[in-house]
């Protein structure tokens, strides 16, 4: 009796998921549709005669952009962890003077719209020469992740038992060694979560890239897509092929690190 109800629910679940993921299917389908069949009605529902020209265009045009995105993403993740992890330790375990207000500032900082930061950075970089540089983009992109990272580290490190830290202290470890060799390894999950999100946000960033690196050669993959859209011929086969390639990190993340993703969404929003 109950198994029949279960099957009904599974079927509905599959249908709902298919509906939700249809745009992604469509992106893949269009990325395989040849240009001459692109504008016909009705459209090809399945890639019956797939072309890989779009992907060839990605290899031809977008490799430098993919490299830039990778570099910026990795450096953003590293910078974010380097700034946020020690701060999380202090906020979680050292009860610093002014910790409460700082916590407040971190929550508020996440709420500042990106375009406003972009305008400020533009004005700042114009005077110090950060426009069209990869490091300028790393710093700007890291502002998306540092407050989030500090809050996640604070939450995770609060859960590290005080006894372990006490034991390290009794063995004569200084604060820094205690942090490096005891607290940080114990918060490995936080390091993974924060790095993943910092990488993904930097990889996905469009606002900072378009305002700060719009004119030069140092362009990430999101601008590669934007340029394709802006072209007069609007080659949707190439646009969607690039979009598929740009989605790979998100897909990998979901497969490899799903529990970290859920942890990241929930972090700072809900107290368990």
């Amino acid at each position: 009796m109950s198994t029949r109800r279960q099957w009904w629910k599974t079927a509905l679940g599959v249908v709902l998921t298919a509906l939700m993921l249809f745009p992604i299917y469509w992106m893949i389908n269009v990325s395989l549709t040849p240009g001459e069949r692109m504008r016909q009605t009705p459209p090809d529902w399945f890639p019956t005669s797939p072309t890989f020209e779009g992907y060839a265009a990605v290899l031809r045009d977008q490799l430098p952009a993919l490299g830039t995105s990778l570099l910026v993403g990795v450096c953003t993740a590293a910078l974010t962890v380097a700034v946020a992890a020690p701060a999380g330790f202090a906020l979680a375990k050292l009860s610093p003077l002014g910790g409460g207000p700082l916590h407040f500032v971190l929550v508020i900082a996440q709420m500042i719209p990106g375009i406003i930061m972009a305008m400020g950075f533009y004005s700042l970089y114009l005077s110090v020469g950060g426009l069209d540089t990869w490091w300028g983009l790393v710093i700007a992109d890291s502002t998306l992740a540092v407050p989030f990272g500090a809050l996640v580290f604070t939450a995770f490190m609060s859960a590290v038992p005080d006894e372990i830290i006490q034991a390290a202290r009794i063995d004569g470890a200084g604060l820094w060694r205690t942090f490096r060799s005891v607290v940080l390894p114990a918060s490995r999950n936080a390091v993974v979560t924060v790095s993943l999100f910092a990488f993904l946000w930097a990889w996905s960033d469009f606002v900072f890239a378009n305002t700060l690196n719009g004119s030069g050669d140092v362009r990430p993959i999101t601008l590669g897509i934007y340029r394709y859209i802006g072209n007069n011929d609007q080659d949707w086969n190439s646009i969607m092929a690039t979009a598929v390639v740009a989605s790979v990190p998100a897909a990998v993340l979901l497969v490899v690190a799903q529990r970290y993703v859920a942890a990241g969404v929930t972090a700072g929003a809900v107290k368990d």
Binding site: T17, M20, P23, I24, I225, M240, A246, S247
Partner: peptide, 20 residues
């Protein structure tokens, strides 16, 4: 888990897919 995918995609990917 699959429902999370749209949230993880770069916004420009989602936006251009919807545009088309």
């Amino acid at each position: 888990a699959l429902f999370l995918v749209p949230w993880l995609l770069p916004l420009i990917v989602s936006a251009s897919t919807w545009s088309w």
